[in-house]
């Protein structure tokens, strides 16, 4: 589940930064989406592709811009899940604008200990 796919769409998506790590028996994916809350976060799995989309309902304030560094728009990042991950075992939560996803492995991909019997 390492490489993300760059999709060319007509929409301009902001590309959020993410971390991937392995903790215990699952993959942890953390994605930064400031301004997105639980209701505006959309996560779908389709053909081994994991789509994480965050919509920001932020209106640009009226007035004169003295500094403008933040980028406006919606976030999207697409990941490819490999065969060892279990698409049924994905959980997600969001806090402080950071999405934390936990992706489990398939039982067949976990190391299995084989007992040796003595005759």
């Amino acid at each position: 589940m390492q490489k993300e796919v760059t999709k060319s769409t007509n929409d301009t998506w902001l590309v959020p930064a993410y971390n991937v790590s392995k903790e215990d028996e699952s993959i942890i994916l953390r994605i930064e989406m400031p301004g997105v809350d639980k209701d505006n976060l959309d996560i779908t799995v389709e053909n081994n592709q994991l789509f994480v989309t965050g919509h920001r309902e932020e209106k640009a304030p009226e007035g004169a811009w003295l500094i403008r560094e933040r980028r406006r728009g919606n976030y999207r990042r697409v990941f490819t899940l490999d065969d060892t991950t279990d698409p049924e075992a994905i959980s997600a939560e969001i806090a402080h604008g950071v999405v934390t996803m936990r992706i489990g492995f398939k039982a067949t991909a976990k190391p299995r200990k084989i007992e040796v019997k003595a005759h």
Binding site: Q2, A17, Y18, N19, V20, S21, K22, E23, D24, I28, R30, E32
Partner: peptide, 13 residues
């Protein structure tokens, strides 16, 4: 997460 062993694969944050 505290108390778990972590292997980092990619860090952009």
């Amino acid at each position: 997460n505290a108390g778990t062993e972590e292997t980092s694969y990619r860090r952009e944050i």
